[in-house]
Amino acid sequence: MKPFAYHQPNQIPDAAKLLVSIEDSKLVAGGMTLIPTLKQRLASPVALVDLSKLGNLKGITDDGATITIGAMKPHAVVAASKLVQAKIPGLAALASMIGDPAVRNRGTIGGSVANNDPAADYPAGVLGLGATIVTSTREIVADKFFLGLFETALEPGEIITAIRFPVPIKAGYAKFKAPASRYALVGVFVAQFADGVRVAVTGAGSGVFRVPPMEAALWQNFDPSAIAAIKIDTDGLTSDIHAEADYRAHLVTVMAKRAVDAALS
């Protein structure tokens, strides 16, 4: 690890100011991605701006039609939240499948969404539910937020404060874990709303994406059989030592069916 300055501001504007004023500074939330990167000397930020002392980033609130989760909420807390379990059980299930207990106790929803790892779980839930990313300066809908491989719509100095999830009629998540890392080799989040169905896939490509043909088929018939014959094009899917692109494409259909099953159960 290379030396760096460490800041722990109490107010969001202070954090934003530090982030803008110090070139090569980085936000740290749970640090589950950043700290290993620092330890391997793969990143060398001049300063870390720690979000843990900022107020109001840890609540879970319910306003009936939506659930809002503070950006610093650890995965384990979301997984165990009675409110999330009651309103969006698929999202609680997703949080319970992230990493291992240590990661779930430290890693945060805001950190995961801001990092936009192509194999992370939360981006599938956020895009699949059509959530809104609330930041220090604005609100961004999920469809405009994820821009591919570790890229998001966040501007310099912009800090995620919460994620607001519309409550679906039904939702489910199915994940095929990469055997070693236990990231999603393919993860599919499916959500049924009064005005449509959303299907979001993580792990398969360079970033989370939706599958319109599956959404249309499930809108007609919210049942695994409706999508069993829908094949995903391998174009743009990842091929690596863990899985070839056509296998990932196959898994998208399998996991989508299992996600619908999970939503129905």
């Binding site: 055997p179 070693a180 890392s181 990231y183 030592i241 863990h242």
Partner: peptide, 11 residues
């Protein structure tokens, strides 16, 4: 070495 970490080499 493409499997050079516990993330890529499955124990």
């Amino acid at each position: 070495l493409l499997s050079g970490s516990l993330m890529d080499y499955c124990m």
